[in-house]
Simulated scan of single mutants.
Amino acid sequence: MEIRMRSGDSFSNFSSLFNIPFTLLADSNPQREQNQIKPGEKIKIPGFISVPYRLKGDDELHAISAAKNISPEALLSLNQTSDLEQLQQGAIIYIPERVTAPLTAGKAPYDYQTLTRVIESMQRIYPFISVTTIGKSVLGKPIQEIRIGNGMKKVHMNASFHANEWITTMVLMSLLNKYLLCLTNDSSMCGQDVNKLYEQVELSIVPMVNPDGVDLVLNGPPSEKRLEMMELNEGSDEFIHWKANIRGIDLNRQFPANWDSCRNNSPVQSPCARDFPGAAPLSEPEAAAMSELVYKNAFDYVLAFHTQGEEFYWGYEGFEPLESEQMAVDFERKSGYKAIRYVNSHAGFKDWFIQEFKRPGFTIELGRGINPLPLSQFQQILQRAEEIFTAALSY
């Protein structure tokens, strides 16, 4: 929601009027020094939308503010007036309405277009987040990263490395949405003070690493690529179990952590629906974008959300630091997921991060069953993932 500054207004004033933390207001208006904003200029108020309302003959300021659970002064400030009673019956005013319901939902799968719409809505309502493009997919779709928080600790989370694991995008976006709601509604998340987490942690989220693959699974191939994709899919036009990117490369077997071993022992030797690691590490633009993101940011630890198994992997070849085991014990206790130190797997994002940076990395296998997991599991998955999400931010 945007509001025009009046003479004497300040971020502190608006923080009190709308019960929004001062830091969120400042971060929602990063290009503006509050003491340099002139009357009449607009600033953004996070966590609110402006809703039109037509005045009736018996409307009074205090009755409207009480009904809408907003202070009279906030109502006057948004409408740039000192007295609503001076307005005529039928005049349109605007009500500052606090957003208390999530923008995300678990009722339908998220393809790339749906994800983009949700991100745009989040940017509008929560302008203290930042959204950037870290690279593009094979088909040119922007791979988006969302940033939130001011802390020295840097944490990264991602989802949908694998196309038929699209439910992980929905889970991660729902976790982010709840975090945003808690920040702007003065509530906690799994018992954690989210405003303290915001001050302590800078969170990086890439919610869909493999947008072409997710769209292939959910919507089928682009018409001009249908025959090509069917050839990679053993002649089938059913792509529900496809894991790879649009070129038939498994993005989670693309990283330089014993990649040669992964390639030599691969059950498949050419592009296909799953498991082929490509002709070289980081050959695919999606994997290269993730590698570049990590090198640029020196994350303290990373979490990659996958499905399925209700377990998580936290070690790689002995390169993991002692801190990893402590975190694994905490994640296991809070989520009920089984902590597994080593698996016979190489060239994954988590493997490479641990080997390259000697910092904690985790592959979280959400839910249980056959991929793609059904949406009927969504709420149960979300509840247990929330424990890991908040534990990771508070560690």
Rank of each mutant, 00 (worst) to 15 (best):
E2D: 14
G8T: 01
G8M: 08
D9I: 05
S10T: 12
S10D: 09
F11P: 02
F11Y: 14
F14C: 00
S16L: 13
L17M: 15
L25Y: 09
Q31N: 15
I37K: 09
E41A: 13
I45A: 02
G47W: 10
A63N: 13
I70M: 03
S77V: 11
N79Q: 08
Q80C: 04
L87C: 03
I92A: 05
Y94N: 10
R98H: 08
V99I: 15
A101R: 14
L103D: 08
L103N: 12
A105T: 11
Y110F: 13
T114E: 13
L115M: 15
T116D: 14
I119E: 09
E120Y: 00
E120L: 11
M122P: 02
M122E: 11
Y126S: 03
P127A: 06
S130Y: 03
S130M: 07
G140I: 06
K141E: 04
I148K: 08
I148H: 04
M152C: 00
F161N: 11
H162G: 00
N164L: 04
L176A: 05
L176R: 02
N177G: 06
L181R: 06
L183I: 01
T184G: 02
N185I: 02
C190K: 14
G191Y: 11
Y198E: 01
E199S: 15
M208R: 11
V209K: 11
L218K: 07
G220M: 07
K225D: 09
E228V: 02
L232R: 11
L232C: 01
G235E: 04
S236Y: 04
F239I: 01
H241F: 12
W242Q: 00
K243N: 01
N245M: 00
G248S: 06
G248I: 02
N252Q: 04
R253Q: 09
N258I: 00
D260T: 12
C262E: 15
N264S: 09
P271D: 01
C272G: 05
A273Q: 03
P277L: 00
P277S: 01
A279P: 01
A280C: 01
A280G: 06
E284F: 07
A298Q: 15
F305T: 04
Q308R: 10
G309H: 13
F319Y: 15
E325Q: 13
M327Q: 13
F331Q: 08
F331L: 07
K334D: 05
G336R: 10
V343I: 15
G348H: 06
W352Q: 02
I364Q: 06
I364Y: 10
I370N: 12
I370K: 14
L375H: 07
F378D: 10
Q379D: 14
I381D: 13
I381S: 07
Q383I: 05
E387Q: 15
A392F: 07
L393Q: 04
Y395K: 14
Y395H: 14
